[in-house]
Amino acid sequence: MEIVDQTESVKGESGEQPISSPLLNRPGAVFIPVRDIEKARDWYCRILGIPSSTVTIMNGHLCSLPVDGSGIILDTMPMWGGNAPGGAPTFRTPAFMLLTEELDASYAFMKDHGAELVTDIQDDHWFVFRDPDGNMIMVCRA
């Protein structure tokens, strides 16, 4: 599909008339399913260089991380299986990526911080790791 303008009108490949959508054409935030909200907050804050003491847990299950761009929200997801014995399903494929200008240093950093590295650095551009809950997350060269 071809984006016509920023007012959410799109023109399909078949040449039909542009349509208008009330949805914005940009993502808001990524929700990451976690089992222990406090441990997850502390781990993500550590790898992202955010003081965990400055990040609030809301309603006992949500934690919005202060990041640039689209947000990252950690959530035990009580409505989506979080109350089940295994918790909400984890990301079995990377659902989003974190950017870096220092790919080798980022790979070493994740290794040093005990992340399970799923891949080595691929194509001198990216790698994938698992967070403590098993979610796969990609890191890409900016």
Rank of each mutant, 00 (worst) to 15 (best):
Q6P: 03
M58E: 12
A108Q: 14
S70D: 10
L99H: 08
R130D: 00
I47P: 01
A29R: 05
K11N: 07
C63L: 08
W80N: 15
G86L: 11
I50E: 01
F96L: 01
H125Y: 12
D131K: 10
T7H: 12
G28P: 00
L65A: 03
S53F: 02
C140F: 01
R141K: 14
D124S: 13
E2D: 08
P51R: 04
M1H: 11
M58L: 05
T54Q: 09
I19H: 12
D75F: 03
F127Q: 04
F91I: 08
F91P: 02
P85S: 01
T76S: 12
D104L: 07
I32E: 10
S70Q: 07
W126K: 11
M138P: 02
M1Q: 09
L117I: 02
P22V: 12
P27I: 11
I19E: 09
G81A: 04
G81K: 06
R141H: 09
F129S: 02
G60S: 10
P27H: 01
P132K: 06
F129T: 00
S64A: 10
D42V: 00
P85C: 03
R41P: 09
T56V: 13
T54N: 08
P27F: 13
R92A: 11
E8C: 13
A88N: 10
R35S: 03
G15R: 11
G71A: 09
L117C: 04
T93A: 13
I57V: 15
I47N: 00
A108D: 15
D133Q: 01
H125T: 14
M97Y: 10
A142Q: 10
S106M: 03
D120M: 03
V128Y: 00
D131C: 04
G15L: 13
T76W: 06
V139M: 04
G71P: 10
L98E: 02
G60F: 13
D75I: 03
A40Y: 06
R141Y: 02
G114S: 02
G82F: 07
I47Q: 04
A29C: 08
M1R: 06
S106E: 05
G28L: 10
I19K: 12
E13H: 09
V118H: 04
E16F: 12
T93W: 09
V67C: 04
D75W: 02
F91Y: 15
G82A: 06
A95I: 00
I57M: 06
E16C: 10
I57C: 11
Q6I: 14
D42T: 01
T54W: 00
K11V: 10
D120E: 15
P51F: 06
P78M: 08
T56E: 15
R130G: 01
K39N: 12
D124A: 14
G28K: 04
P27W: 00
F91L: 08
M1E: 14
P89W: 05
P132M: 03
P18H: 03
V4G: 01
A108E: 14
R41N: 10
C63A: 09
D68K: 03
S21Q: 07
P51Q: 04
I19S: 14
E116Y: 05
E102M: 05
V10R: 15
M77A: 15
G82E: 09
T100V: 07
V55Y: 07
